[in-house]
Design a protein around this nucleic acid. Structure first.
Length: 210
DNA sequence: CGGCCGATCAGCT
DNA sequence: GCTGATCGGCCGA
């Protein structure tokens, strides 16, 4: 069986507006697959990739979410801002994870973007990853790697994707099947550990796990 | 290929 | 003091 090698999606150069983000995490997660995440660096370099893997964190009832039980701290404050806000947090002492806030205003709901298929700026991404010999499909595979490749860190926590000039989403469609399964890396959070809230494009090589 | 583990630090108990 | 929405190197099979 042959792996697909073409791009995962057809992109329209149409920036996602507030309304696109203002819905539940599971619905947004599915719709983000096939969209393009675009990042413009201070120097003007443009980096982008097609979103191929996401996880939904559905709100205060979600035992695996940073906002579980209404927890509201300095770290997760962005989750309480309006839909379309970036929630970027630092974890394991060395990695950043990039999320898109969704839901109704004030509801701490978000989608974690776990992997991209690189489209623009692969050379810059490769340099930023700092590891030699990476294949294209490894550049943005995994939430920490994606953040590193696109220069996403806490400086972007709280920025508005529906307004901002350095980070946004372009609507796109993909043709592959969507698969779903348990989210990755969760601790003992009961039934929430098994909830099938991770979504990915079947067969795409940039997906972190299959 | 799969499991183990260290890195490294902010947030929380 | 412990743990984590991770990653990659190392080890053994």
């Amino acid at each position: 069986m042959r792996e697909r090698s073409g791009p995962a999606a057809t992109i329209e150069v149409r920036r996602a507006k507030r309304r696109f983000f203002a819905r539940g995490a599971e619905a947004l997660a599915r719709s983000l697959l096939g969209c393009r995440l675009v990042r413009v660096l201070d120097g003007g370099e443009r980096l982008s990739g097609i979103i191929v893997e996401v996880e939904a964190y559905v709100g205060v009832e979600d035992g695996a979410a940073h906002s579980f039980g209404g927890r509201h701290t300095a770290r997760n404050h962005s989750m309480y801002l309006r839909a379309g806000t970036a929630y970027v947090y630092f974890t394991y002492g060395m990695h950043h994870c990039f999320n898109i806030v969704c839901g109704r205003e004030g509801e701490p709901v978000a989608v974690l973007v776990r992997a991209l298929e690189p489209v623009e700026g692969l050379g810059v991404m490769r340099g930023r990853r700092g590891r030699v010999g990476l294949k294209d499909h490894e550049l943005c595979r995994g939430p920490g790697n994606l953040s590193r490749a696109l220069a996403i860190d806490r400086a972007l926590d709280g920025v508005d994707l529906a307004e901002g000039g350095r980070l946004w989403v372009e609507r796109g469609k993909h043709e592959g099947e969507v698969e779903r399964g348990a989210r990755i890396g969760l601790g003992p959070v009961g039934a929430w550990a098994e909830a099938p809230l991770r979504f990915w494009i079947k067969g795409n090589r940039s997906v972190s796990r299959t």
